[in-house]
Amino acid sequence: MTESANPLRLGLIEGDGIGPEIVRATRAVVDEALEVVGVPPVEWVPLLIGHAAIGEYGDPVPEQTLEGLEGLDAWIMGPHDNASYPRAHRTGLPPGGAVRKHFGLYANIRPARTMAGVRSTASAMDLAIVRENSEGLYADRNMFAGSGEFMPTPDIALAVGVFTRVACERIARLAFEIAGRRRKQVTIVHKANVLPMTMGLLRDVCYEIAAEYPDIETTDEHVDAMAALLVRTPERFDVIVTENLFGDILSDLAGELSGSLGMAASLNCSDTHAMAQAVHGAAPALTGHNRANPVALMGSAVMMLRWLGDRDSHSALHRVADRIEYAIAGTLRAGVATSDLGGLASTTEFTEQVRARLHRW
C-alpha cells in the first residue's frame, strides 16, 4: 500500500452487549479523523458474531463471517457475551478466541498508561504487555484440534499447556521490536522456578533473542512477584513479554491500575492480519443505556491503524492515529468521562467531544 493506494477495507463486527454502541462510536471517530487528515474514507465491511450471528446463521462464529474476514487485512471486533448464548453454543472457543485461532493472531499487545484527568491507582505508568496468544497455559487455544482439556474420570480434570520454540521466538522478537521504539526495556515474566521445562523454555528463548538487541535492557520476573511489582512500582516497566494466561491476568491488573478496564486497548495480530478488540467484556448490564466507555475500543482502533501504517509504510495512517489519541487524551484531560471513570458523560456525549477535538490539532 502507498499513500495514493485504494481506500482501506476494514471489517466491522459489533458483537454483543455494549458492542454495537462502542463499535459505532469508534467508527465515527475513525471516519472523522480520516477526513480531517485527508485520507480516503474506509470501506467498512459489516460482519456478524454472537447473538446476531446465531439469529441469522445459527452459529456465533459463522463461516460467512470467517470468509468475509479472509479478504480483509484488519477489523474492529466488539465484545462477546458467550455466557448468555443458548446452551448449544456455549461450548468450544468463544468468538474472539475462534477468530484469533482461525487467523493465527499469535500476538496480543495490551498497553496501559495513566492519563491526565483520569483517577488511577497507579500514579505513573506507561507500559505494554506483549502476550503470546496461541499457546501457553490456555488449553483451549494451543491444540490443532480439540480443547486441550480432558477428564479421565468425572472427578479428575486435566489441561495441557504447550510451549514451542517457534512461538517463543516470534513473540520475543516482537516484544524487542516494540521496546526499541519505546524506552528500550523488556521484562520477561514466567514461573520457571516451578515449571522449568515449559516456562524455562519461554524464559531462555527470550534471553536468546535478547542477544540480538544489545541496546535493550532485559530482565525477568516470576509472575507472582510481577503482580506485586505492578501494584507497587508500575513506572519501572516498559515492555512485558509473557505467555497467554499470565498476559491476560497481568493486563487486566494493569488496566485497572490505569483507571478502568474501560481504558484497556488491545491489538491481536500476526504478520498479515490485525484485529482491534478491547480487553473488557460485553457489560450486559450497561447495554442500551448509552453509558459504556468507548475509550478502550477507540484505543484499539488507534493500534490497528498504526499496525497498518507500519506494515504498509503509510505515514498518513500514523497521523490519523496520532490525532485520535490526542483527541481522546484532550477529552479526558478536560474532565469529560463516562461513569466508570467517575464522570457524567454518556457514550454519545464522550464521542462527540472526541470528534470535536479531532479538529483542534
Rank of each mutant, 00 (worst) to 15 (best):
A254M: 01
G281M: 05
A264E: 02
T287G: 08
A276V: 08
N268A: 14
L261I: 15
V279Q: 05
A278S: 11
G288M: 12
Q277F: 05
I240G: 01
L250I: 13
V239K: 05
S251K: 09
L250Y: 09
M275K: 00
R291H: 12
D252R: 03
A264M: 13
S258I: 08
A264T: 14
T272F: 13
A296D: 04
N268E: 15
A265T: 12
A285N: 15
T242W: 14
G288I: 05
N290F: 06
S258G: 14
E243S: 15
L267D: 04
D252K: 03
H273I: 09
L297S: 02
M275Y: 02
M275N: 05
T287A: 15
G288Y: 06
N293T: 03
S258F: 12
G247R: 04
F246G: 01
D252N: 10
C269G: 00
V241F: 09
D271W: 10
I240T: 06
T242H: 11
L257C: 12
H280E: 07
L286K: 15
I249V: 12
A282C: 02
E256C: 12
I240K: 00
V239D: 01
L286P: 05
S270C: 02
G255E: 06
A254Y: 01
G247Y: 04
M298K: 03
S251P: 09
V241G: 10
L245W: 03
A283M: 05
G259P: 05
A254V: 02
M263C: 07
F246L: 07
L297H: 05
N244C: 15
V241W: 10
A296W: 02
C269P: 00
A292L: 08
I240L: 14
H273E: 05
N244I: 12
A278L: 04
L286E: 15
